[in-house]
Amino acid sequence: MTAQAFFQVLASGLLMGLLYALIAVGLSLIFGLMDVVNFAHGEFLMVAMYATFGLWAIVGVDPVLLMPLVIAFMFVFGAAVYLGVVRFAMRAKTNSGMVQIFATFGLAILIQGVSQLLFSPDYRSIPASWLGGRTVSIGGVFLPLPQVYGGLISVLAFAGLYLLMSRTDFGKALEATREDQGAVALVGIDRNKVFALGWGLGAALVGLAGSVLAIFYYIHPQVGGPFALVAYVVVALGGFGSVFGALAAGLIVGVVESFAAIAMPPAMKSIPVYLLYLGVVFIRPSGLFGRL
């Protein structure tokens, strides 16, 4: 492999990894907060992509400018999912883990079905935008602008998340609620409100990823599946509930997958990713940065 090809594969892996991390962090956040695995996470991503596409088609403004609207919409959507579905699932007296799984999984099927009904199963894409299809070459290494933009957004989102968690009252309330749900009630924190905001935040983060992805990826009702699968691996590898574990694991998965596709038949490129995941889970069941 030439040095140029090496750096190309590395850069592509890192850029994709940042995006994987951004997709996964919302999932990790929600799990860390309340021990609920959102099986509709891929569908959240898909909804965000359709929201971007729909706004673009109606308003006719570049997807980059639409991002705040998409995030706001996804925040409301995420909070509504908590208040309308998950809150009730959590009340189950017996086997509440299973109830939560079925509730979010059922929600996933519902969202897919409704999307297919509303938007048809046709593949949509945003054909022309400021960034779409543009690419810069640095010493023969091609960096597609949508992915560079996505990587930048991802880094900023993680920085913002760090500040939010460490510097704000909301962050402290999140942290306290995940530590001990019962105790926070005693100091006057409304658990339900924190959970709703947590779901809103988780959905907004995947919304961020969706608004970037919509620029360069096709959009259809099942688009979330392959990304969600990667997100589950990223979350488990990085450590359930660990925000920065998600960042590290996202980058690892992106780079490993990228090089695996060169080193072996690309059809098998996921195998090293899963092997790595298995290895980590064997040695450190809580994941790389998990605190469980």
């Binding site: 030439t2 090809a5 190309q8 594969v9 592509s12 892996g13 994709m16 994987y20 599946g225 392959p226 990304f227 990667v230 997958e257 990228s258 090089f259 695996a260 596709a261 060169i262 038949p265 690309p266 059809a267 098998m268 490129k269 996921s270």
Partner: peptide, 20 residues
Amino acid sequence: DIKYRANSPTLTSEVQQLKT
């Protein structure tokens, strides 16, 4: 001679080989 995984989130490395 590139056999790739269907519905993959990314095909960058695969296309890089085609390009080379």
